[in-house]
Design a protein around this nucleic acid. Structure first.
Lengths: 360, 360
DNA sequence: TTGTAGGCGTTATCAT
DNA sequence: ATGATAACGCCTACAA
């Protein structure tokens, strides 16, 4: 109906949304001027025309077509975030940080949920690439041994060569800038804090070792115990979820006599575990200490309040966006903080009843 | 460097990502054929060529440029979700449902956080429109009296005339299909259940009445009490957050003698309130009943377990996507379920000590 | 300062 | 079944 460069539609009333051409015509200027007036270096357009164009745009309810802009400029102002589960407080806290920082940088957030499946994660990253995002943030526990690793790296590499930023959160093993959380150090600190509080016989509720986050925390906890002469903690493998914690606690309760504190590798598990222990007739904090990791919001409202290792998750999300945007920055490692609460009260026990002490 | 329609870049090694033209050239077919082989009605392209094109695409790591597709097809396969706060379990549960259903429909999720500000919400919807999403879902409490209402409607109307679906979650007052949650009915059911359990003197912890969700639940609760002859509940206005609940509970504790159960209009508040009561020396569930609304995950792990009104939030998110996609469907109203737990144990009190009964 | 025209990657139309 | 080529909406040299 019209030549190249001409207005795509004559009458806007019946057609789609107003285009830049409509605005230009309405304002009596060329498309180029309209474009410059609304977006580009506006310094080079006469003030009167700027006003005219702005008014026209306003009158027509014009919104720039971001896809068109993207295709013309070669880059879309979006940050793509891949998480395991939005409903999990761990990830939603990260997502909140990403959203805030993206917003501050004028970027739009697009989010995809991988649901813990490496295959799904790979597929997501694949299709997400079609969006040509400015930055891609992948979070969630990397799963060792998943056959998708190389394919994922290959895919992410394509982003990078396309000029996009790739950042990982808490996944040290992929060759990209990573916002790192000191899982091992935090867990070690916790272990020492618990030793200091008088606990000696531990159980660790952990997820399968293939889950890197779980493994790091587990190993960090053992490292923190090293040299204390305390007996080897009882390791209970279970799901990385509330129900996993609950089930493991019930199992654990049968040998409750052997342990005086249980460390669950995340708070969701720990909170489930507290309920599990209670359902098994044990009083968390009184009969047995309980500690978690992450310091999610409900930790303070659970009874007894949960001892945990605080992780600045929101900050992690924000840092990831900043890291992706300024590629010179050095990847931050976020420090964790042990927070002792009522679930692990100081434990005094008579010296003579310390069979473990004889080993050292 | 090339004419219109020609390959945009000669050597792909140094240039950007492979384009359809590259694939076509590599496969020795035309762009049109390549396009058809990869996306369009593939029925009309020879099997041999399909294979050839697929192979070429694979070899070159080709991904269709979604923005380009969007601009050519006129529609982007994205669903835009506007929430108040991702980190809030209420919204993250909804987001999870939206994400799952969007995924199932082959759509990409883009999310924006309004942070409880109507102005911000309006601005978000404005810029989001530039993406030309296939469906827009706005959730979060509508705030009565905000001057942005008309502007918001105008903006959303533009989506609709542009062929996009607009769906609200839990905001009955905007002229769009709405996935509705029976706040009033649920609260009334809860009130009756508490009456049945023997509670008589209530306090309601609510947010400012301008927050529609809060008001509906508050009013529903009163409606459920109507005719029971029970004294007018004590209304305590506070923030719609955990800390709001905590603070209100502490304030409330001073007149604890007057109430035997407190209803907080959401679980986050209720959980904060439980801690607040406890810090004030009252034992939730023993000295005073506590009930919330939403039945978020931590409700079962708090002690005593929190009585609440379950809302199918995930389902609400999923339903919103479905509703937007099939414009013939009638907007569902999701039913709520009262779940009595240990925070409101049955309360027996001697008949002679019922001063309130004298009023009926 | 403003306008012209070509290009961005894809799809759709129309011949062939 | 396949191939040219004109949109799609916007940006940006280049010219004027």
């Amino acid at each position: 109906m019209t030549g190249t460069g001409g207005p795509p539609d004559g009458a806007r009333g019946a057609g789609g949304p107003a285009t830049l051409h409509d605005v230009a015509r309405e304002a009596g200027v060329s498309v180029a001027t309209a474009s410059r007036a609304l977006n580009g270096s506006a310094r080079h357009v006469r003030a009167e025309n700027v006003a005219r164009v702005r008014a026209a745009a306003d009158r027509l309810g014009y919104r720039p077509h971001l896809s068109a802009q993207a295709i013309a400029k070669g880059s879309t102002g979006t940050v793509a975030l891949v998480v395991r589960d939005v409903a999990d407080p761990y990830f939603s806290a990260i997502a909140a940080g990403v959203a805030a920082e993206a917003e501050a940088a004028g970027l739009i957030l697009t989010m995809a949920v991988a649901g813990g499946s490496p295959e799904r994660e790979l597929q997501i990253v694949r299709t997400l690439r079609g969006r040509r995002p400015r930055v891609v943030i992948v979070t969630g526990s990397r799963i060792d041994g998943a056959g998708t690793r190389d394919a994922l790296v290959e895919e992410l590499e394509a982003y990078r060569t396309a000029g996009g930023g790739v950042v990982m959160i808490s996944q040290r093993d992929l060759p990209y800038p990573t916002v790192t959380i000191d899982n091992g150090g935090g867990a070690a600190d916790l272990a020492r804090a618990l030793l200091g509080a008088g606990y000696r016989r531990f159980a660790v509720l952990h997820a399968p070792a293939a889950l890197r986050t779980s493994r790091e925390r587990h190993e960090g906890f053992l490292a923190g115990l090293a040299g204390s002469g305390v007996p080897e903690p009882l390791a209970v493998e279970t799901g990385f979820t509330r129900d996993g914690g609950y089930a493991a606690a019930r199992r654990l309760a049968e040998r409750a006599g052997d342990v005086d504190a249980v460390f669950a590798v995340n708070d969701v598990m720990a909170i489930g575990a507290m309920t599990g222990l209670r359902d098994a007739g044990l009083r968390p904090g009184t009969d047995i200490g309980v500690a978690g990791f992450d310091d999610i919001a409900p930790a303070v409202d659970v009874v007894p309040a949960l001892t945990s290792v605080a992780v600045p998750l929101r900050e992690a999300g924000a840092a990831a966006v900043r890291l992706a945007l300024s590629n010179d920055a050095t990847p931050p490692s976020l420090t964790t903080t042990v927070i002792l609460r009522a679930s692990t009260p100081p434990r005094r026990r008579p010296a003579e009843s310390r069979p473990w002490a004889t080993t050292s």
